[in-house]
Every structure is written in C-alpha cells, then in structure tokens.
Design a binder for these strands. Sequence first.
DNA 1: CATCTGATG
DNA 2: CATCAGATG
Lengths: 323, 323
Amino acid sequence: SGPKAEVIQRIEEYFTGTDSLLNGAGTSSSGMEEWDIPVDGFVDWSSSMRRPDPQAPHWKLVSWNVNGLRSLLKHEDDPLRKLLEEERPDVLCLQETKLKSNDIPKIMETLVKEYPEYNLHCWNCSNPRLGYSGTAIFSRAEPIGNPKYDFKGEAHSTEGRTITVEFSDFFLVNAYVPNSGQDLARLSYRTEEWDRDMREYMNTLRKRGKPIVFCGDMNVARTRADIHNAEGNLESAGFTEQERNAFSLLLGGGLRDVFREQHPQVRGYTYWSYRFRARQRNMGWRIDYFLASPELMSRIYDSYILEDTTGSDHCPVGITMLC
Amino acid sequence: SGPKAEVIQRIEEYFTGTDSLLNGAGTSSSGMEEWDIPVDGFVDWSSSMRRPDPQAPHWKLVSWNVNGLRSLLKHEDDPLRKLLEEERPDVLCLQETKLKSNDIPKIMETLVKEYPEYNLHCWNCSNPRLGYSGTAIFSRAEPIGNPKYDFKGEAHSTEGRTITVEFSDFFLVNAYVPNSGQDLARLSYRTEEWDRDMREYMNTLRKRGKPIVFCGDMNVARTRADIHNAEGNLESAGFTEQERNAFSLLLGGGLRDVFREQHPQVRGYTYWSYRFRARQRNMGWRIDYFLASPELMSRIYDSYILEDTTGSDHCPVGITMLC
DNA sequence: CATCTGATG
DNA sequence: CATCAGATG
C-alpha cells in the first residue's frame, strides 16, 4: 500500500542479493564453525554505506553503551546532545548509564526539558551496587502500558540490565548483557544462566504475538569478521566459545543480526578498549547489536554504525524501521 | 662580621618595631584568650610585603602541601617546576605527596634529572595505607647523616608524616600534622598523642644543642587573624580549642611563629577548601607554618606566602634565613 | 585508559 | 571540589 510497500519490496531485493550471508547465518550446515568464516574480501564499514531515510513513515532506533551518562554529559563536544540533534532518533536505548537512582531525577529533568519531544524516559539501575551497569530508553512514541524492568522474576533484577517496552507492533528489549569478567569469573553465570534465561524470555515474548527488536551491548563478537584479532581473543571475555555458542542459540531461536544481514561482507566495530590506543588503531569488536524477529526484517531499511561518535568506549548503532 | 651581621642588626630592629606582637605571642598575660585577638587594623597579605633577597649568604626554605604530587606534576601550568625555577628554594619541604612507595622511584628519577642541583631527595610515605599523607624534602645542601623518618619509635610511623634532616647549624623538621577528621574523629589522637609527642620530640632535638626549624602543614589556625570565619569554625577540625591549645603549648615550649612575628598585623592564608569557591572568595586558613627556635629569629630575614601558586588547596610558604 | 564508588581533606 | 585507591570494563 503506497510508499511503504514499495520500500519493503526494495529491501527484500537488497537482502536476496548475491553477497548476502542470509542463508548461512545462524546455521553451520557447511561443517565450518560459524565464527570462523573467512574474512577475505570484507571491507571496512563506512558511513557512506548508510541508506538515506526512506520516504515512507519510519522510526530510527539507536542503541549506545555510553560508559557513564553523567560523565558523558560533561564532555566538551557534548556527544549525546549532538547525537539527539543530528541523528534525531525516534527511540534511543542506552546501556551502562552507571547512574544510581539518586542521580536519575536530576539528569532526567535536564533531558526532559531540553528534549520534550521524547515522551517516554525510562530508567533501570543497579541496586544495591551503585554506579554500575544501568539502562535507559527515550522514545518519541509512548508505549503500550508501562516499561517492564528486568526479566524472569528476581533472577537478574539487581543490576538494571534490561528494559522491555511494548509498542503497537513490536516489543523493544534494551539490554546490557553481563560481561564475563576478568579471568572469566562470571562466564558460567553469563552463558548458563543469563543467556539461557534471555532465550526463554524471548520465547515468552514471541508467544504474545508481536515481533521483537532486541538491542544493546550483547558483550559478544559473533565471528572472525566481528573482532580485530580473533586468535588472540579466543579466551577473552566476549569471544569465548561459550559466549559465541550462547549467542548462536539466541540467533538460531529466531532473532536475526540485522547489521550482518544487511552488510554481509563488512567489518564494522562498535567497541574499542580505552587501552592501547585501540580506537585509533581500529582494534575493535562488534558487540553492540540490533537483533530482530524475522518478520521485521523486510521493514528494516537500514542498519548502521555511528563510528564518529566519541565519548564512550562504544559508539552508537542504529536501524531505520518502516512503520 | 661583614654583611651578615649588618643584616641581623636590621632584622632585630624590624622585630622590635611598635607594631610587633612579639611580646604578647604565646602568652595570655592580658586575660584575653590568645586566639581571640582583635583583628581591627589588620591588612591582607600581599607579595609586596616580601623583602628582597639579602646580600649576605642565605637559604630560602619553602614548604608546600601539594595535595597529591603525581597529580600536581600533570597540571597544565606545571606549578611545581615553576616554583623551583622562579623561587629557586634551597630547601623544599612537601606534604601530602600521596605517593605510594612504588611511585617514588619514577617521580624521583624525573626530578633528579631535571633538578640535579638538589643533592638531597628524601621521601616518607604511608604504609600500609596507600596514596595517603606522605612528605618529602629536596635540598641543595647535603645534610649531616641520613634523614630521620617519623619520630618517637613506632608510635607515629605508619603515615609518613615527618622527616627530620640535620644541617650544620640547625635541625629541619618537615611535618604533615594529622587532620582531626570529620566529626573530630581523630581529635584526641591528634592533640593528646601526636601533638604531645611532637613537643617531646622537639625537646629531645633541642637537647642536642642545635636550633630547630619546624615547618609544614600544622593543620591548625592559631588565632582569629589566621582564619576567615573564626566563629563558624570553633567546632571545625583545625580550629578547635584543643588544637589551638596544643599548638600554643608547642609555641610556648620555645618555637616561634615566624610569619606572625614578622607580620603581626597581617592576615595571610595558606589553605582554602576546594569547596564553595573558597579560594576566589579568600575564605582561607593559615595552617602552614615555619616555626623556629628563638635563637634563629635574628637570622630569619623574610617570611612569606606564595599565594599565587595554584595546583593544590594549599599554597607554599617560605622563609629566607641567613647562613 | 576510561568510568564509577568511597575515603579523606 | 579536589586528591587518592580499588573495582570494573
């Protein structure tokens, strides 16, 4: 019906192009381990790969691990306001706000006053551990009902890592997946409990009959194309076999890695350690994702990395979705 | 004998001028509490009150609570190097270096390389508590024997608060007197143990037959003229009756407050809280001192406050001593 | 090499 | 409102 249908048609053609990994993604039918795909012929992500905003009505969704919102708002170049004003996302999901509940009213007041067009501001924060983790969502559109904080009862409710918001035609889940920690101290919690329970949660959401957008810092790089130095990081938090396998299970369970499907031959990172001047040397990881239910893929027009946005050790990622 | 004797004569005349508090200092013969002297007619310290360097051979001694030496060396305007190059002290005493023993070799190497004219570099630091307190002395002249760290055996030996150096004609004691703490938690330790033991230590040094220069952050303002708001701070660490009385006992025991004797009618502060923009508003305290044995007073040519030196919540203080 | 907290001043 | 540490990433 009108421009939207035309655009969807174009997106479907784009996805079925010859360079697409779509058919192979999430399976290992070839016998080759999924993570170990060859990266010959991959090109680096560049913002010129972004597609212009479509004519059809659409939402821009952006996700960003800000590594401390209070600090971010003090930066000289004010990258959050720049993002809000230049990118104008309809929905902005933040991770690692590191806010304690005491800090939230003041920050919220500031942002509500400056950006009244965002009708929803919701915050989840760690408790009792202060200044750790934390997530937030700003949205121009108001959701159906109230945001849902955390998932699976009390199991993962003390670190403020997830917020779920229901919109008319999809669920949005914003997550900051636990880091497996130094010496992988938290690897088993992360993969055997959190990741498992998240898959279950995705299944329960799906049963409610709406597709899902699941975004945030997944704290795992999927494949050789998603990390600068695969060999050197096989034992590192964020690239262990256990984490990659758990992520594969999530994707196998019906969620799709939007960026990878739209850019099958592109190397694009979203995180660079603050150490070793890693960002200047582009020694990065792709660990921030938009995942989506298959039935949404034909409406997702663009998927991109805002690699020029500084102020955090992560940069924002975004999608454009027809609505 | 020559210029030195002439200068000493001039200093003595200066001290016996009509505006001197010399006769009243350290006693309360008038019935009025010493701290509560009227401050009418006091003028603010200004660097124009400094006396030019004398012709006779002399040493400049400077004392500075640097509030973290590592941080100080990273400041844009590099105030420590500026002090060393512009003031060219013969002896520099530092307090609150906040160095742990691990940090000392590297910092020492840097400074020894840049300022080889300082033949003595000695450091005392807190242990086991890291990054707390700490003192240091740099001196062009080499001392007699080795520096002595701490005093009174093991009683006050875990916080790196004092260094004693013996020169040919005086002892130099550099001290960072313990702060009485929030809610005066440490007031009794400070006044009943540390201050008492320090008086004893001064007595033992005196018995060795040399005068004493005792400098540093004494963490107490003596009188109404030494603090911006006396009434408001009668219960504050650094201006309680107990601390003022303990300091009076030290002065009564034979040490003289050089700045106050040379500038009896001057209000000069050496510390301003980082809070409340106290320094801009000159809401300060005089808590950094050079104290000296009476027999040295006729040789101390100048006593001054380097109020323009920033980089710490204290500014340096100095004296010029004929030798 | 960043961010947080919490202690200290 | 500064410094430090120590935890975390």
